[in-house]
Design a protein around this nucleic acid. Structure first.
Lengths: 147, 147
DNA sequence: TATTGTTATACTCTATAACTATA
DNA sequence: TATAGTTATAGAGTATAACAATA
């Protein structure tokens, strides 16, 4: 193999590069720490959403998480097949499916918590506690949509 | 449509969510600001790399940017077809292709600079200048691989 | 006529493996 | 035997459109 090439500062110090690196690393760490529980980041997001709201239409899940309706159909298919979520027709509007976590889903969510914490801690390890807080605050403000 | 659902803090304040939001937003802003120049983020990265190093093997590009060899082949194919980069056999090792920016490639890189700056400024607009520096520093430290 | 959810299709990215030419 | 690059293929993920049921 030829001599390795140093990544120039014109890339290394760029925000897009830094963000994509941090994001990729987060994906890898989440996957590593939750491997034996076999849950995608998206499924985890759905579970957190259902933990907070308990009963939601698929369309509400799609809107809240910024997903396509069809994507949610596939997601819920998989979660239902694994017994993590249950689908019911909404008697009040028979077009809609109401989704809720099952007991198994709630249990898995509890199992996931320490793994997710460990992944986050590993990601943030290079920073001190106050710096971690600072980073979170800055990212929250960065993501604030202009009103 | 049913009532909109508020994204719970269990998601909204999570680092993975914040990172992915910031990353997605960055992708959108780059695409918007460079639309008429028709360059992918990856092509831009290759151009910055070639600006810093001038002549590189495809394998060196792949290694520096963390891409697959095949991906680089396709990338360089496209850039060569547009006249942005030139491929030459390396006389010193005839297995290898040496890639360099053409004059058109250098010119496009110059055209891209203000668009990229505008995208970055829009992304960072919610933060003050010192905060922007702080964010960059924290992300650099976050991405430091343990030695 | 619009909305909810499903299904089929296609399209982009990515990963893998097989191949050539050179070393 | 290993490396540089190419090509073909398959897979995941995503987007689009057409459709049935219901409002």
């Amino acid at each position: 193999m030829a001599v390795s090439v140093r990544l120039p500062d014109s890339i290394r110090a760029r925000l897009p590069y830094l963000l994509s690196r941090a994001y990729q690393r987060q994906l890898v760490l989440f996957a590593e720490h939750t491997r034996e529980l076999d849950v995608s980041g998206r499924e985890y997001a759905v579970m957190l959403l259902l933990e907070a709201h308990e009963r939601l239409w698929q369309s509400q899940i799609a809107e809240a998480l910024g997903l396509d309706r069809t994507t949610v159909t596939y997601l819920v298919d998989a979660m239902e097949k694994r017994g993590l979520a249950a689908r019911q027709r909404d008697p009040a509007d028979r077009r809609a499916h109401v989704i809720a976590l099952t007991a198994a889903g709630t249990a898995l969510l509890a199992e996931l918590a320490p793994a997710v914490r460990a992944a986050r801690d590993e990601l943030l390890a290079p920073l001190s506690e106050p710096e971690q807080e600072q980073l979170r605050d800055l990212l929250i403000r960065l993501n604030q949509e202009p009103v």
